[in-house]
């Protein structure tokens, strides 16, 4: 059986908000290491990879591996009933038909109990090759969100150019063009406000802004975001949170 108690419902609520528009149904794979999810969007352009490590729960118990097939829209509706500060407990039997969710207020004067039907999802698991990326850019998550939102007003695509001079986000569309260049900065008092660029070679890739804007729904989960790029491979966008991560992969646009 699975029993996983999370001190802050907000983590799960924000995570769901960050993935439910990309993915409709997905298996939550539970093992003794924690709860993970891997799913592609319908168009096979983007992939979501979530890990909530066992040590992020207190307590966490999972006797044998379980795949909980969940409609993310339904889970999101159930989680709307949880307050951000509620303690949330997930429970499932072995070979379960239902997932049980309990929301307790901090002072334990209110306990809400929900049961959600599970579904059978036949989902292929993709092998993601270990990649030593040529460019690793860490920046404030809010900055990345703003850049994606601003440039999506100009064009459907953005070209990200990482070089020793900085990282440049550029878009060109019918109304004109625009770009934002970030230089490396160092803010020792607020590391999450710094921008760092590690580069082994220059990288230039073009991506659909629609997906990037969607990824930035994860902004409330982390102060910083890391973009990892190599020429001709998918972009990795990672939000690290306490007790896990939310990663998005996005296939580039390529020359016809």
């Amino acid at each position: 059986m699975l029993e996983a108690r999370l001190a802050q419902a907000a983590v799960l609520k924000k995570t769901l908000d960050a993935i439910k528009e990309l993915v409709t149904d997905a298996n939550f794979d539970c093992s003794d290491g924690g709860i993970s999810l891997q799913a592609m969007d319908n168009s096979h352009v983007a992939l979501v990879s979530l890990l909530l490590r066992a040590d992020g729960f207190e307590p966490y118990r999972c006797d044998r591996n379980l795949a909980l097939g969940i409609n993310l829209n339904s889970l999101s509706k159930v989680l709307r009933s949880a307050q951000n500060e509620d303690i949330i407990t997930l429970k499932a039997a072995d070979d379960p038909d239902n997932l049980s969710l309990t929301f307790e207020s901090q002072n334990q004067d209110r306990i809400s109990e929900y049961e959600m039907k599970l579904m059978d999802i036949d989902q292929e698991h993709l092998g993601i090759p270990e990649t030593a990326y040529a460019a690793v850019i860490t920046m404030p998550a809010a900055e990345f969100q703003r850049i994606c939102r601003d440039l999506s007003g100009i064009s459907e695509s953005v070209t990200i150019d990482a070089s020793k001079d900085g990282v440049k986000f550029a878009s060109a569309g019918d109304i004109g063009n625009g770009s934002v260049t970030l230089k490396q900065t160092h803010n020792p008092e607020e590391p999450a406000l710094s921008t760092s660029i590690e580069l082994s070679e220059s990288v230039t890739l073009t991506f659909s802004l629609k997906y990037l804007v969607n990824f930035t729904k994860a902004t409330p989960l982390a102060g910083a975001v890391t973009l990892q790029m190599s020429n001709d491979v998918p972009l990795l966008v990672e939000y690290k949170m306490e007790g896990g991560y939310l990663r998005y992969y996005l296939a580039p646009k390529i020359q016809d």
């Binding site: 352009v45 993709l126 092998g127 073009t206 998918p234 992969y249 296939a251």
Partner: peptide
């Protein structure tokens, strides 16, 4: 430019 598919980079395990 055209959108590449992730399936050409990541293969089912």
């Amino acid at each position: 430019m055209k959108q590449a598919s992730l399936s050409s980079f990541f293969v089912p395990q």
